[in-house]
Design a binder for these strands. Structure first.
Length: 618
RNA sequence: GCGUGCGUAGUUCAAUGGAUAGAAUAUCAGAUUUCGGCUCUGAGGGUUGAAGGUUCGAGUCCUUCCGUGCGCACCA
């Protein structure tokens, strides 16, 4: 453990550090060895054993040259004598289970309550750019984008809480053959429709034309194939198909359109601007509904020429090389990869070229040390190359490039395929979820006494909460199954369960305030016996800063989902086992209110980091 | 073929190299004169894909094999 880590550790965990220090001292005294703090494993004691924190002594057995039990006994005795917060201990095999004095727990709760910024780490003075969303403008957003956006937004929040300075960015892929296809279909079959004239969101309208193009294109291929087969009777079918696909009239026309676009042909540019404009309006609505936002938006049309200079400079510096046909390459064979093309023989860019340029542009705009790309795992290779190339170019931020590679979202029926019409549209999905939330919540009478506006707000909160929670609870790296039935579930490990816990807590706090029961630190500081479930909550609350740190270091919101679920679950048990207002001991009653208040606060904070709102009533 | 992920209860997912591999769901059985029953408690359900190896200790690290996804364009 570096000094650096230790010092940040000290700030966030006032509970464990004294014990760790004490263990180090113990080993020093008894065995004359200076043990690394990192080797000391303190973990939460499983519920079936007595105690709250457990020290694993196995790692020191070799040094101590005695049986694990003996060693545990020695350390336990030492702690009892030198570490006032330890009230007793027991030993099971090589595990030293420590009981913390109840007063410490009361004090911990006081500290949490008095900390206005609980969970907010001190500034690290490190800038991070988080790029996410990155839509193509020829189609509306779908379920896969939802995972991407929720991940990107949440990771940004988490990094901020962990003390980083964060810039959220979005690169909009607004040019290229894909949008030309929509444009061409519109030109041919569009009859001057507009989003207003057909009453449709712009991104959906443009997406419709993309589908129209694709259908007509497929038909052309079918029609052309026999001709080609006659012409090249000895060619393999696969290669023949490639030829046909490249040469249908529609495809040739789309490519011609792209050329015109690149030459700034006024008519093409005008159509392009018009249709992209519709799409942006549509996207803005969708982003708003999703509850995500960006600090900086890049457009591919403005960045796609960047990177050429970068490549030329690298060529001059001998980092890249030129082949006979004038194409430029980078040799990554020593890094376990291949040679990779950076500029075509005609000097034009390829996909990665502009990413090199964009990376530098980002750095100009926001001199970051870390750069996170939230992009699907089908691009793993691409980002390996990007990082390596930037490292070879000696960019200061190159080592901080991190590809937050997430797995595909699959459906019970299999993969989403646009051809087969099995793509789940983001707008539709969110709307459906809100409908279901409305239906269920209304049936249960949960919104009795709500204004129409408040009701709608709640339905949306529950629906989006369910969806975000569902998509964020899985390790990003892994592919995940999206089961529509489960995603709108309100019970068990779900967003609504956690939201409900928060609403119950809010009700308790409201009542306490109405009854004017004090619950500040003075009101409960003398409580020195706590129920197990109360200790569990405090212990869990105290871990909050550390859990944020972990989530930030792994760029992984799922660990935070697990955290907040665990907290809601413990609290629900507390709620069932103990009564707040029927407790006769006034100090204890106050402690329970304070405990509730803090649990509610941390639930809300955690959920907000996930991009989820929590209700006061539901 | 090469590269790179992933295989854990019926299902969907957890598990900084640490105790008897945990949740949720579904199934079954219970709880509530109590602050909000979208709640709580309990039961059954596992050869962690297979085989070796490292380790005091392996779902986790290494090797091989099997299954599966993704990537291997002068496409983006």
């Amino acid at each position: 453990m570096s000094d650096n880590f230790l010092s940040s550790y000290k700030k966030i965990m006032n509970l464990e550090l004294p014990i760790i220090e004490s263990v180090i001292n113990c080993l020093k005294q008894h065995f004359q060895t200076d043990i690394n703090a990192q080797k000391i494993s303190l973990q939460a004691t499983p519920r079936e054993f007595e105690g709250e924190l457990t020290l694993v002594v196995f790692p020191f057995v070799k040094i101590a040259k005695c049986k694990p039990e003996e060693l545990a006994q020695k350390i336990g005795d030492f702690l009892l004598e030198n570490c006032p917060m330890i009230s007793k201990f027991n030993i099971v095999k090589g595990f030293l289970n420590l009981s913390i004095s109840p007063k410490i727990w009361t004090k911990t709760l006081m500290q949490i309550a008095e900390n206005q910024d609980f969970g907010q780490a001190t500034p690290k003075n490190i800038k991070v750019m988080v790029e996410y969303s990155s839509p193509n403008t020829n189609k509306p957003l779908h379920l896969g984008h939802l995972r991407n956006n929720f991940l990107g937004f949440s990771v940004s929040n988490i990094l901020q809480k962990a003390g980083f300075e964060v810039m959220k960015s979005n690169i909009v892929n607004d040019r290229g053959i894909h949008i030309c296809k929509s444009m061409l279909a519109y030109k041919k079959f569009g009859k001057n429709e507009t989003p207003q004239s057909v009453g449709k969101k712009g991104d959906h309208l443009v997406g419709d034309y993309y589908v129209i193009f694709d259908k007509a294109y497929k038909q052309e291929i079918q029609e052309l194939l026999p001709t080609y087969q006659r012409e090249f009777p000895n060619e393999e079918l696969e290669k023949l198909m490639e030829k046909v696909e490249k040469n249908t009239p529609l495809m040739l026309e789309a490519q011609e359109m792209l050329r015109k676009w690149e030459q700034n042909d006024p008519e093409t540019i005008e159509l392009w601007k018009k249709m992209n404009g519709w799409v942006y309006e549509g996207f803005a609505q969708t982003y708003q509904q999703m509850g995500v936002s960006f600090d900086k938006i890049y457009y591919e049309s403005e960045t796609y020429l960047l990177g050429k200079k970068t490549v030329e400079q690298g060529l001059k510096d001998g980092i890249f090389f030129k082949k006979e046909n004038q194409s430029v390459w980078v040799d990554l064979t020593n890094d376990g990869l291949d040679q990779k093309l950076l500029l075509r023989s005609d000097g034009t860019s390829v996909y990665i070229t502009q990413d090199l340029g964009l990376a530098d542009l980002k750095f100009q705009d926001f001199p970051m040390q870390q750069s996170v790309y939230v992009v699907g795992n089908e691009q793993d290779y691409h980002f390996k190359v990007l990082k390596l190339v930037m490292q070879k170019l000696g960019r200061s931020y190159a080592n901080g490039i991190f590809h937050l590679s997430y797995g595909m979202v699959e459906l019970p029926s299999g993969k989403m395929k646009s051809r087969e019409g099995t793509v789940v549209d983001a707008d539709d999905l969110m709307a459906e979820m809100i409908d279901i939330a409305r239906q269920r919540t209304f049936e249960l009478g949960k919104t009795d006494g709500f204004s129409a506006e408040d009701s709608e707000k709640l339905y949306k909160m529950l629906a989006l909460g369910a969806l975000k929670y569902y998509l964020l609870k899985v390790d990003p790296q892994k592919k995940m199954m999206f089961n529509p039935e489960d995603s709108i579930d309100f019970q068990g490990d779900t967003g609504v369960y956690v939201q409900f816990a928060h609403a119950k807590i809010a009700a308790i706090v409201r009542r306490a305030e109405m009854l004017e029961i004090p619950y500040d630190s003075n009101a409960f500081e003398n409580v020195n016996s706590l129920a197990n479930v109360e200790i569990e909550i405090i212990r869990h609350l105290a871990n909050f800063p550390e859990r944020i740190e972990t989530a930030a270091s792994r760029y992984d919101p799922s660990s935070l989902v697990a955290y907040v679920y665990e907290l809601a679950k413990i609290y629900s048990r507390f709620y069932a086992e103990l009564s707040v207002f029927q407790e006769e001991n006034v100090a204890k009653r106050s402690l329970r209110i304070a405990l509730s208040k803090q649990a509610g606060r941390v639930i809300a904070l955690s959920m907000n980091l996930l991009g989820i709102d929590v209700p006061e009533k539901m």
